[in-house]
Simulated scan of single mutants.
Amino acid sequence: MDLDAYVGERRGEWNRLDALTRRRKLTAAEADELVLLYQRAATHLSVVRSHSPDPILLASLSQLVLAARSSLTGSRSYSWRPVARFFTTTLPLELYRARRWWLSVMVLSVLFAGGLMVYFAEHPDIVAMFMSAAEAEQYAGEDFVNYYSEFQAQNFAARVWTNNAMIAGQCLASGVLVVPVFYILATNLFQLGLIGGMMTGSGYGSTFFTYILPHGLLELTAVFVAAGVGLRIGWAWIAPGPHRTRGRALAERARAGILVALGLVAMLLVAGVLEAYVTPSGWPDAIRIGIGAVVWLAFLGYALVVGAAADRRGESSELEYAKTELPSA
């Protein structure tokens, strides 16, 4: 093929297409002409690509075709509507659908941690296997409280946010294997039970709960949600249910888990702010604990009430894409 002759013969059409593409407003006839020239240019690009190694010509013609395509489909302006829908519908809907998992994990974990606290409080000799009496007194009397004001508030908030996000992420990511979730939960609950039992047995129980509850209610719930959703993902391939393959069930649950993970980022950020600014604030105990309780109850209402309402409306958490019919080239 004589490339120069081919290009020269169609240069006029390309120039006309370029001119139409640059116009902000087109008449009906010009719009029809733009569609026709776009289809021809796309065909020309295919021919040139298969016969010519000239990168400059290919780049120029590709840019022209892309510009014409963009002119036909229009540019999408950014909208906050998908973000608003995520927080008002998608996230609470997925939290509600997974409620049996994370509520069960929450109840069992609280019972387990509470049992450990009682056990360690009544058996100081067992606590002594992990720390000496002097270390326990130092930690309960000073270090535990000082931990919350050791760093500047904004740095401390970022630190606990990333740490808790790591724990929640591990629960979600390892959910497909099931067993690691129980290990992660047991490890963290054991530490909580040991510290709580040690401080309670040493006479610092009120200090422990005063400093844990303002942020811990929401923080621990976020971890329980992550663990519950992670176990839900793992159960999908163990028992996919009727009319679903294991692969499909796992993909569906994993997708839902990703949506919840995005929500947990915001949830743990709030918990980090509470831990950095409210817990060590020095405000009266009732106010600090009350703030934590109100935020925690707000989350439960958001997940169970707002989520239930979305479920009753038959809402879907599927992403909605704007579909545009493109003229075939």
Rank of each mutant, 00 (worst) to 15 (best):
R11I: 01
R11C: 02
G12F: 09
G12K: 09
E13I: 02
W14V: 00
N15A: 14
N15C: 00
R16N: 01
L17Y: 04
L17C: 04
L17Q: 03
T21I: 07
R23S: 10
R23I: 03
R24D: 13
A29P: 00
E30M: 08
A31Q: 13
A31I: 00
A31E: 12
E33R: 12
E33L: 05
L36V: 11
L37H: 07
Y38L: 11
A41C: 11
A41R: 05
A42Q: 09
T43I: 08
H44L: 03
S46E: 13
V47S: 08
R49S: 15
R49P: 00
H51S: 15
S52G: 07
S52R: 09
S52T: 11
P53I: 04
P53F: 04
I56R: 14
I56C: 00
L57K: 06
L58M: 10
L58D: 10
A59D: 15
L61A: 04
L61H: 09
S62C: 01
S62M: 04
Q63G: 15
L64E: 07
A67V: 00
R69S: 11
L72A: 02
G74R: 07
G74F: 07
S75E: 15
R76L: 13
R76N: 04
S77A: 15
S77K: 13
S79H: 08
S79Y: 05
W80Y: 10
W80P: 01
V83D: 03
V83G: 05
R85V: 10
F87C: 02
F87K: 04
T88K: 10
T88D: 03
T88I: 07
T88G: 03
T89I: 13
L91V: 02
L91D: 01
P92S: 06
L93P: 08
L93I: 10
L95S: 05
L95Q: 04
Y96E: 07
R97P: 05
R97K: 14
R99W: 12
R100G: 09
W102S: 02
L103K: 07
V105Y: 00
M106W: 08
L108T: 13
L108F: 14
S109Q: 06
S109A: 15
S109N: 07
V110C: 06
V110T: 11
L111G: 12
F112P: 03
F112N: 03
A113W: 00
A113E: 10
G114E: 05
G115K: 11
G115M: 12
M117A: 08
F120S: 05
F120C: 04
F120V: 06
A121Q: 08
H123W: 02
H123V: 04
H123M: 03
P124E: 04
M129C: 01
F130E: 09
M131H: 12
S132L: 12
A133C: 01
A133S: 14
A133W: 01
E135Q: 15
A136M: 12
Q138T: 13
Y139R: 08
E142G: 01
E142L: 11
D143V: 12
F144E: 05
